[in-house]
Design a protein around this nucleic acid. Structure first.
Lengths: 332, 332
DNA sequence: CAGCTGACGGAAATCGATTACCGTGATGCA
DNA sequence: TGCATCACGGTAATCGATTTCCGTCAGCTG
């Protein structure tokens, strides 16, 4: 069925070597022969077999990526941004999901390595139990981990500067007139929640003296509602509630508005991540936008650097996120 | 660096043929030799080269998929469900995005074909201009299109039964006491909006006599708000507003509650798709859930049927979606 | 004019598996 | 016993490109 490079070479009256060189433009080929090869390829409707090329050249032009899941909008956006970056470099994306199971994650990584991907991007699914899989990967191909930071790894890392984000939020609500704060977050089961909590404690203390109450639960609407209810039932409501992510903040907002508390007049509320619904909430939520495109560009840059054999490239990049001001905080 | 099957065969004291057969379990190998091969592979830390296997066997165990974008939650869920299905069959997913550009879509499909994917799944990005690319694909490998239906194509198709969904919604609000209806949808630029509109007209007429007003705009919150405002300013408000999708319904809900109209007491509101935020709206939105996992299973079944050489397999499947009843409609 | 260099073409090796084909010894059956 | 069949092993071809290695020829130099 399909024409091979032999057919093309025969039709052009040259050797396969010349045909190959002509089509990939690796070495000089006389313009006359070049034309004939191109013409022959077109006439035969030649479709190069990337599998054969990959076997010989030991390069698949394919990047593997393993994420916990795709239906999470944050991950989906990361995948999309990375795929687009790769497209520009004529590479393809081989995608796997771990469903937050480290064993599945390991199997997926192994499958991608068997397929000889040129490099690997992972969003690890577990702080400790993902380490060995990433370790394995990084001995085989250039590897970058996204978002979650693992202990003692040897691969590259790109993530968000949680500290910078929290600091921006706090400075913003203080500028809006807040004198007392509270933090509603998640128990530090991963590096992000840990960092956001630490940053809050540090920044609140530095900027505001002793920081207010810290309530820790999980990243759900329900927890946000419950935490807000606790604050409402407590002694005195803080001027601003800083939340560990947007989902929590939506729950907080809902509990407050149901109890007739005005946002931002009585209490300012902030989130983190800028998920799609942040903009649709009532009132729209001030939050920190994850710089996904920026992170994707950084990841791909890091990998292509390594693939083109850079001697020593950057190993860790924390991208500074952006404050998105909406109606849930005071405007000045 | 890596051990090849030759090394494994040598260490096990057998030929490469026996090693290959033993590892892939294709043909009988004496248990004794089988053990020795497995032991040798383990000792050498043998990692099979899937690229070489693919070249010879003409099978990559890889499925290509091209979607308009991944950050759209509906597409993300489809990709996730399909990836999971493929995982079970030991296949991998090579993913490309078209960003709603038919030229990009064509390039992506071509790239996937060059990589010799075993089959192709597309969510076409344009009703007319995607046809040629899909056509091309389906002459090369088994192909299934999802969601959008193209004219006169020769590949398989899996989608949602929009008609069944709309009928369920209408029967539900009528059962809840509605005597008059309105439809807020999008101009029929794709087959889904067309079908939903047609179904509404048919079903409303059949079930309710002459149907109420039909307002067409686009799939946005803003349009939902505007349409609701128009209805509010009109002569008399219908008992139920059927929306073409959830986004529109959210806009409708917002406009109604801002004007003090009670949902569902004064007006019932329904959506379509069951996006994540439907559950979080005030009140939570009654809607039609896209049966994504079911559709994914259907797609993969269709492809594996064809790959295992079924003589004649199903070509078109419309999956019936599920009605999700929440507080935006009357409970009885 | 001898010798060197550089540009280019071609033959053949190569990547690492699968598989077609053949050979051999054991077994079943009449 | 004679012969067909079966189970299994090995040799070598094969998939379709890239790449190494070498040869040729033109042009340039001194």
């Amino acid at each position: 069925m399909g024409a091979t490079i032999h057919d093309v070479a025969a039709r052009a009256g040259v050797s396969v070597a010349t045909a190959s060189r002509s089509l990939s433009g690796k070495r000089g080929v006389r313009p006359e022969n070049h034309e004939r090869v191109l013409a022959a390829a077109r006439e035969l409707n030649y479709e190069p077999n990337a599998v054969a090329a990959a076997l010989r050249s030991r390069t698949t032009h394919t990047i593997g990526m393993v994420v916990p899941r795709i239906s999470n909008p944050f991950f989906a956006t990361m995948v999309e941004a990375i795929e687009q970056q790769l497209q520009e470099g004529q590479r393809s994306l081989l995608l796997g999901t771990s469903h937050y199971d480290p064993d599945v994650e390991l199997r997926q990584i192994q499958a991608l390595l068997d397929r000889r991907v040129d490099a690997l991007i992972t969003i690890p699914c577990h702080r400790e139990r993902s380490a060995s899989a990433t370790q394995l990967a990084s001995t085989r191909v250039p590897t970058v981990q996204l978002d979650l930071r693992l202990e003692g790894n040897v691969s590259g890392w790109v993530g968000v500067d949680n500290d910078a984000g929290i600091v921006q939020v706090i400075e913003h609500v203080l500028a809006g007139g807040a004198r007392s704060l509270a933090f509603v977050g998640a128990s530090p089961s991963d590096s992000s929640s840990q960092e956001r909590l630490d940053s809050y404690r540090r920044a609140a203390t530095r900027l505001d003296g002793p920081h207010g109450p810290v309530l820790l639960g999980d990243f759900t609407i329900e927890w946000g509602q419950e935490a807000a209810t606790r604050l409402l039932d407590g002694d005195d409501l803080p001027d601003a509630i800083v939340c560990g992510n947007d989902t929590i903040a939506l729950g907080v907002l809902r509990a407050l508005t149901r109890r007739g508390v005005r946002v931002p007049d009585d209490v300012q509320v902030t989130g983190f991540d800028d998920i799609a619904y942040a903009e649709l909430a009532e009132p729209p939520l001030t939050t920190i936008r994850q710089p996904q495109r920026h992170m994707a560009a950084e990841v791909v840059r890091m990998l292509t650097d390594q693939l083109s054999g850079a001697t020593e490239s950057t190993r860790r990049v924390a991208v500074v996120p952006e404050l998105i001001v909406r109606a849930s905080t005071a405007s000045e």
